[in-house]
Design a protein around this nucleic acid. Structure first.
Lengths: 233, 233
DNA sequence: CCGCAAATTTGCGCCAAAGCAACGTTTTGA
DNA sequence: TCAAAACGTTGCTTTGGCGCAAATTTGCGG
């Protein structure tokens, strides 16, 4: 039996990007940032946009999703406070590969490509940190691709909830509550299934006491049970 | 209708990693490399191994695959001559996230983590090049995840062949021949389907004149037709 | 607090593709 | 050169989960 894959990703925060940077470096970084307030539901950038910048969520939450030419949506990732997004575009063709939409009222900071490249050239550690962050995300996408190809819809939803719990969960008396407000469609689009299947499975779990769901705020009541669903072969 | 995603990835060669490096930089890089000959079928590293190094295929071809705890296999990528692999592990937890297996007799060069980090710190452009390469791969995995979630098995196989043609295709009178020798299982595992489905679809295409298949060497005879299969909504 | 719009639930039919088994073909290595 | 093993094909059966429609609940603006 092969080695089990590492649970991995941790929170990929902007703090990691500037890890090891001196006070003066941070000052230079802060000076070149642009800050914005984004209301719930508003798009921050759109797939194909060309003026790519590097973004960080200061407060709130963002959905990163791709929309196929047939209208099918897939959520690549949810971004919580402190995490980077939109950064990969800077290093490829400068076109954002996905949409970014605020799913709660959000504040985000961003940097121009030139400013970030300048920082990286002067402080190589920042560039190395960036590889590390992108590397984790690549590993996560590889794991998700494996799951899409080999696991059932139920297992994928379970795994998605476990990831979201690690990423943005808060411990409460009832269990781990996922802070981001998620609709059934969001759950479906990040698990690679349909609204209907996601609804059926979640109501089933709610009845079985695995999760509870109040006003789009999911709580994982039985973490071990959920893990078992995700891992059953 | 949303902007169509860029076809993207190009060949991600080691040349890109050292793009812009001076002759002296290259000399330092070459001096610290380790070279190995790997016979067809032999594993180069294994998922979970800890002594991660940065690898380049000098000649031959390599299959990067993950094996789930239930034995299910997924191919993440095939690596052709000139391309990097195994590099992401250096920047995450130093454990290879997948297996690497030679699928033809292969020569591979590799660097220790310390040597590569040293190079990157001294020549930040190399670090920036590395982000670019990993960024392209992340985008490619995101596209593949979207396809796994939203497209049919037939469309995914078509897309996989198109990618392989771009990556390792050679023009011949009969069309574009994919140089890597691929078994039905390889095709299935990179498209997220089964051996049986892959076989059925490929024999169908062979009958229709879209592809020909001689001794595990696939040739795309009708590129436009294949593209149409991949894109039909 | 009301009423409308959006989100969710649920029953049901259906199909793409997985799983299985049996058989043909190619490759390998001794 | 030949046999065994690996690989590929194909018919049949089974099923997870998609898609639609209709009913129900929730959330929001006024």
């Amino acid at each position: 039996m092969p080695t089990e894959l590492s649970a991995s990703p941790q929170s990929l925060s902007s703090a990691d990007l500037f890890a090891g940077a001196s006070a003066s470096t941070l000052k230079i970084a802060a000076a070149s940032a642009r800050w914005r307030r984004v209301p719930n539901g508003k798009r921050i950038f759109r797939q194909g946009d060309e003026d790519a910048r590097a973004h960080v969520v200061v407060a709130g939450g963002v959905r990163i999703s791709q929309t196929g030419s047939d209208g099918a949506q897939v959520v690549m990732r949810f971004i919580c406070a402190g995490e980077m997004f939109g950064t990969v575009a800077l290093f490829t063709d400068r076109k954002y590969p996905a949409d970014a939409t605020a799913i709660v009222d959000t504040i985000e900071a961003s940097w121009r490509e030139a400013d970030l490249l300048d920082l990286m050239t002067r402080f190589p550690q920042i560039a190395i940190n960036a590889i590390r962050i992108v590397g984790w995300r690549l590993q996560e996408m590889q794991n998700r691709a494996r799951e899409l190809a080999t696991r059932s819809a139920e297992q994928r939803i379970a795994q998605a909830l476990i990831r979201l719990g690690q990423q943005s969960g808060r411990s409460t008396p009832a269990g781990t509550t996922i802070l981001l407000p998620l609709r059934r469609k969001d759950i479906a689009d990040i698990s690679g299934t349909t609204l209907f299947t996601a609804s059926r499975i979640l109501t089933g779990w709610a009845r079985a006491g695995l999760v509870t769901d109040q006003r789009r705020r999911l709580t994982i009541a039985d973490h071990a049970g959920l893990q078992q669903v995700a891992e059953q072969s």
